[in-house]
Design a protein around this nucleic acid. Structure first.
Length: 869
RNA sequence: GGGGAUGUGGCGAAAUCGGUAUACGCGAAGGUCUCAAAAACCUUUGGGAUAACCUCCCGUGUGGGUUCGACUCCCACCAUCCCCACCA
């Protein structure tokens, strides 16, 4: 074996061998337990970035471990290949999105292969392949038949910069999730997936994920679905046959209602205004509010409203409540109308104060006294005791809430109601680079789904992407004009494409059976591999992809394709790799070497602004190209570094010194392995397990003990924490132990037979445990130790509990809780032994000064605390 | 406004169940080797007092509390970051 570590050579060799021998290709094997490990679908952006390296290194380490533990490991890879950026890039460069995407895919695949990732490449998928998106279309038609997708004219979120519609999830905070442009509302006929039909299941099944998904993802999903239990109450409109229904979670405060407030878009508004002198003014005001809302989606606006001139009757007490419209009432939520209770809701409070709408009821102070309305500083939204509420006064508010809802129900002016923030998922896009919506419009037969035997509807090549208005597909007559599949008459195709989140909602399943042309997948294969045991990806998908794929799974379950509720058993959201940026007021972005230690610009001496960002870019001068790093240090060093920098879920800062450290560590392993290799590879040495432990020297027993302790530590870490940074620390410790052992051997004048056995045990354990983190180096070492089979087919090392036992331990001796001394004891020392040893200690005797201790606390194997009063 | 997280040496971090804080690595200092340098190897490295590698004091964002004992649990606060946000 080579004396020096040459990563390039080794990595080329093993990447070639793995590919030739199809080492990581797997198939169903009912006799073996499966493990499905998955990293999120890679978007074909054009270049691999360091975030990919981090994501894939985590997943790959776990795959290695599970494989060596004997699991049948499915670890597939694929491309999220449709989408806006490819189209934008193609428009800019005058090329074709397909060409752009295929090139990006080829280049990125080469990059990822140079990382030596252990994917089953035979299962590679790309969402832009007709053999893949055909099944998107199939699902669409299945859903259409079941009413799970439907068309409706609705205001959609529209990104004016990219000219696309966005889902609510993609337009949160009023900005486009990709380009950040302010989102506007636009009316359009759109396809919607009925995710709200699964709202309850999506909330309830979160319980199954408790403890296995990060708490914050569960919380975010729960908040996003936003189920809230309350009541709908119907108020008769005075001098009219009409009524208005509001949604409230606090019907117990209804005696405090002082107004009914409608959203400006509320359909009842024209009727309320009928014949009123305020009519024109109010309608103009409403138009104004709508316009303002569109313009300023970002910040909370000042509350604005106007009295309509109409009144509604409070069904509980017959009071006449003025009907207002206001900007803070949202048409999309609840019934688009609320009852204002200024004493119980901060928004209503501000609104009532601003427009001097008199308060009807007030809350009790803590000591039971009444507060006058003018003394109120803010609304009290807590659950306390009802006041001034007729026969419900003095009740616990929760109890009142229940009783009053029942009363309303019994008297037919109200009912229990549940509302959700979740809205149906708009899935049509007026763009080219996506899967065509498989629908045909016929004058006679209406909306006709494309029959299964005519799928896929192929995305036509060479579209003009620069057309104004509508989708580019609108302008391709041979695509648009078709025969109606039902009557054969002339018909038109739908020219929208599907949101790319449809593609990624079910790709997890496709990996189980990626080339099936009968069905999206064979349910039996899915039954073997699914659910995903460990899913790894970014937190940015907490409410996008992860809620869509959960929805899709439930939908497929109802189609009879799968037998379970949740697609992903365990989720890890990995942190970002961030890198500092430096910005100088004079010289803009600076390279790190242009910044002096006191964070001033070396060119002009001005203080620089230090930023911490994930997105690396050339313009900000903080880019790190994984391939450049691999060229210098090797893929193993790079992978080792990103895993060693911190625990997977935490953000980690890129560091050039860190990558050198990783590289140095691998060289250090290499040196000691190369030194012992000629002896270790010799089969004549006895195996360590046959050695007589009692006959070994101290340094030999120590190395065996440390070896077994470290195997235990790393194994446990893989099983329940996946904190690979500490696994790597442990490997470094083991390496250091081998070096110390080596020195002891040198001192004794060279290795004996038992030295070789002990060294082999340690080196082979080290090599096998290195495989998840630095697989190429590990494979090469393993081979050089005389093993013909790939490490991928070898076992994870086991440990013997007996050998992990310390021979002598150091026990802390505390006096009154402060560390004062140490006791050396046997690990078997009884509590009483330790107590006696502690009391015999000089320091303890001195502190005692003749007194008896008030208390002696013994923690076996750890410490003794002697307490004097 | 709501929700979540984080705060430990010069730096990345460790401490898994309330039990010796700072493992492992980076950086730094000194040494060995060398004509020299690099690499490698060895030693030291939280702060302070002291002649002292004896010993003592302080020390995990701040202030309290519980406990024989708190980075860890509880309360309040400060700072930073992330997500959601007029959701009735």
């Amino acid at each position: 074996m080579n004396e020096k570590y040459f990563p390039k050579e080794i990595e080329d060799k093993w990447q070639r061998r793995w590919a030739e021998e199809k080492t990581f290709e797997v198939k169903e094997d009912p006799g073996r337990q499966k493990f499905y490990g998955l990293e999120m679908l890679a978007y074909t952006s054009g270049r691999a970035h360091i975030g990919h390296v981090s994501n894939f290194s985590i997943g790959d380490a776990l795959s290695w471990y599970k494989r060596m533990r004997g699991f049948n490991v499915l670890h597939p890879f694929g491309w999220d290949a449709f989408g806006q950026p490819a189209e934008t890039a193609a428009i800019k460069e005058g090329t074709d999105p397909e060409e752009f995407t295929r090139e990006a895919m080829a280049y990125m695949k080469w990059q990822f292969q140079r990382m030596g990732l252990t994917y089953d490449w035979s299962r590679e998928i790309a969402t832009c392949d007709p053999e893949y998106y055909r099944w998107n279309q199939w699902f669409f038609t299945q859903m259409l038949k079941r009413g799970l997708v439907y068309r409706k004219n609705s205001p959609v979120n529209w990104c004016p910069k990219e000219n696309i519609t966005l889902s609510n999830e993609q337009a949160s905070q009023g900005r486009c999730w990709r380009c950040g442009a302010p989102v506007i509302q636009k009316d359009m006929v759109q396809w919607f997936a009925k995710i709200t039909a699964y709202a309850d299941q999506l909330v309830d099944d979160l319980e199954q994920l408790e403890g296995k998904w990060p708490e914050r993802v569960i919380t975010q999903q729960r908040n996003w679905i936003g189920r809230s239990l309350g009541a709908e109450v119907t108020f008769q409109i005075a001098e009219s046959d009409e009524s208005v229904t509001v949604f409230t979670t606090r019907i117990d405060t209804i005696y405090g209602a002082n107004a009914i407030v409608l959203a400006p878009e509320h359909p009842l508004l024209p009727k309320v205004l009928e014949g009123k002198p305020e009519r024109e003014e109010v309608l103009a005001f409403a138009e104004n509010l709508k316009a303002e809302q569109r313009a300023a989606a970002l910040d909370e606006q000042e509350k604005k409203g106007i009295f309509t001139g109409g009144y509604a009757i409070n069904p509980f007490n017959g009071e006449r409540l003025p009907i207002w419209i206001a900007n803070f009432v949202l048409i999309q939520y609840g019934t688009g109308a609320v009852m204002a209770v200024p004493s119980g809701d901060q928004r209503d409070f501000e609104f009532s104060r601003k427009y001097s709408i008199p308060f009807r009821q007030i809350k009790l102070t803590a000591d039971g006294g009444e507060i006058q309305p003018e003394d109120l500083q803010e609304a009290d939204e807590s659950w306390t005791t009802t006041v001034n509420s007729g026969r419900w006064s003095g009740l616990d508010s929760r109890e009142a809430n229940r009783l009053m809802t029942e009363y309303a129900e019994a008297n037919a002016f109200g009912k229990v109601a549940i509302t959700y923030k979740l809205r149906d998922w708009g899935i049509s896009r007026q763009r080219y680079w996506g899967a065509p919506v498989p629908v045909i419009y016929c004058e006679k037969d209406g909306v006709v789904p494309v029959p299964d035997d005519q799928l896929p509807v192929i995305l036509p090549p060479n579209a003009n992407l620069k057309v104004e208005g509508g989708s580019p597909l609108d302008h391709i007559p041979e695509f648009v004009n078709v025969e109606c599949p039902a009557c054969g008459g002339p018909a038109r195709r739908d020219t929208d494409t599907m949101d790319t989140f449809v593609d990624s909602s079910w790709y997890i399943f496709r990996y189980c059976d990626p080339h099936n042309d009968e069905l999206p997948f064979d349910p039996e294969k899915v039954d073997y591999w699914m659910p995903v045991n460990q899913y790894i990806g970014g937190i940015e998908h907490a409410v996008l992809h992860l809620i869509y794929t959960r929805f899709w799974t439930k939908m497929m379950r109802d189609l009879g394709l799968v037998k379970f509720d949740e697609p992903v058993l365990s989720l890890l959201t990995q942190g970002m790799i961030i890198k500092e940026t430096y910005e100088c007021p004079e010289h803009e972005w600076l390279f790190p070497e242009q910044v002096s230690e006191d964070k001033t610009c070396k060119l002009c001496g001005r203080p620089v602004t230090v930023g911490r960002v994930e997105k690396m870019s050339k313009s900000k001068k903080n880019a790190v190209d994984p391939i450049e790093i691999i060229d210098i240090y090797g893929a193993d060093a790079l992978r080792l570094f990103v895993l060693f920098a911190g625990p997977p879920e935490k953000d980690k800062e890129w560091s050039d010194a860190g990558i050198e450290g990783s590289s140095r560590y691998l060289q250090r392993v290499w040196r000691i392995a190369a030194k012992w290799q000629p002896k270790v590879a010799n089969d004549e040495a006895a195996s360590a397990s046959s050695l007589d432990q009692a006959a070994l020297q101290d340094y030999q027993r120590r190395l065996r003990r440390r070896t077994h302790q470290i195997i235990r530590a790393i194994t446990e870490n893989f099983e329940d924490r996946m904190h690979f940074n500490t696994c790597i620390s442990s490997l470094m410790e083991l390496t250091n132990e081998i070096y110390s052992f080596d020195q002891a051997v040198e001192k004794n004048g060279g290795p004996t037979g038992s030295d070789i056995s002990v060294a082999r045990e340690a080196l082979e354990a080290l090599t096998r445990m290195l495989a998840p983190f630095a697989p190429h180096a590990a494979e090469e070492l393993w081979e050089s130790f005389g093993h013909a089979e790939s490490l991928a087919r070898s076992e994870w090392p086991g440990f013997e509990q007996d050998l992990t036992r310390e021979e002598g331990i150091e026990v802390a001796l505390q006096i009154n809780g402060k560390l004062r001394s140490k006791i050396f004891a046997s690990p078997d020392a009884s509590e009483d032994d330790l107590k006696q040893a502690a009391l015999a200690d000089e320091k303890v005797k001195a502190a005692a000064a003749g007194r008896d201790p008030a208390k002696v606390i013994v923690v076996p194997k750890k410490l003794v605390n002697v307490v004097f009063k």
